[in-house]
Every structure is written in C-alpha cells, then in structure tokens.
Design a protein around this nucleic acid. Structure first.
Length: 99
DNA sequence: CTAATGACCATTA
DNA sequence: ATAATGGCCATTA
C-alpha cells in the first residue's frame, strides 16, 4: 500500500460538513511532517470516492485544488462548512480522527 | 543513485 | 497584515 493510498483511505473517513488538514492527514497515516507529500497525493488522486476537497491548510485557509480553489470552496460551503474571508474554523469543522 | 516538483508548515522580520 | 526562509516528505523523471 502506497503512501497515497493510505491518505485516500484515511480521508474517506472524513464525513460531509467536516474537513481535515494536510498536516493532520499526514499525522494519521504515520508521517507527521509529510503535509507536502499529502498535497501531492491529493493532486494525483483520480478516485471519485475520495473527498479530496475536504483537505485544507493548517491555518484554516482553503489551500489548493486541482480544479481550482474556488470550486473547492463552493463544494465545502454546499456541505455546510462556513467559510468567511477564505477561511474556516477548524475547531468546529475539523474532523477528529480516532475519536 | 540524484534532482526537481508541489493542493504544506512554522518561524521570523 | 504580508514576505521571505528553511525544513520536510513522497513521488517521479
């Protein structure tokens, strides 16, 4: 199982209306400092089952998206995530793994 | 093996 | 608030 697949697998656990961060995701899959690599994994992802739009930056800003950051923002808003000034409250919308 | 790339992060100024 | 800097890691050529 590749690093990318682990990321996808973990990301699938994130429910609608919640988000996670690149750093968090990296931590979950066992590489606490692989935020960048996680981003790469998302970029290459082509599996539709993977909600790659639910991954944002640590400071609550949107981050990038293969189809455009704006698209990503709208998708999240549709799912119920409140985004103000291009940012969101991770304390409220951040999914906690292995609760 | 090395070098380059990137949807990042934290610190510092 | 922004900008620059160094680090960090997996993938790919």
């Amino acid at each position: 199982m590749s690093f990318n697949e682990k990321c996808y697998s973990a990301l699938k656990k994130v429910p609608q209306g919640k988000v996670t961060t690149y750093a968090e995701l990296g931590r979950v899959v066992g590489s606490p400092k692989s935020a960048r690599a996680v981003g790469n994994a998302m970029n290459k992802n082509k599996n539709r089952e993977v909600p790659c739009h639910r991954v944002v930056r640590s400071d609550g800003s949107i981050g990038g998206f293969a189809f455009g950051s704006e698209k990503k923002t709208e998708m999240l808003k549709k799912e119920g995530v409140e985004i103000v000034g291009g940012k969101m409250d991770l304390d409220k919308f951040g999914f906690r793994f292995s609760l």
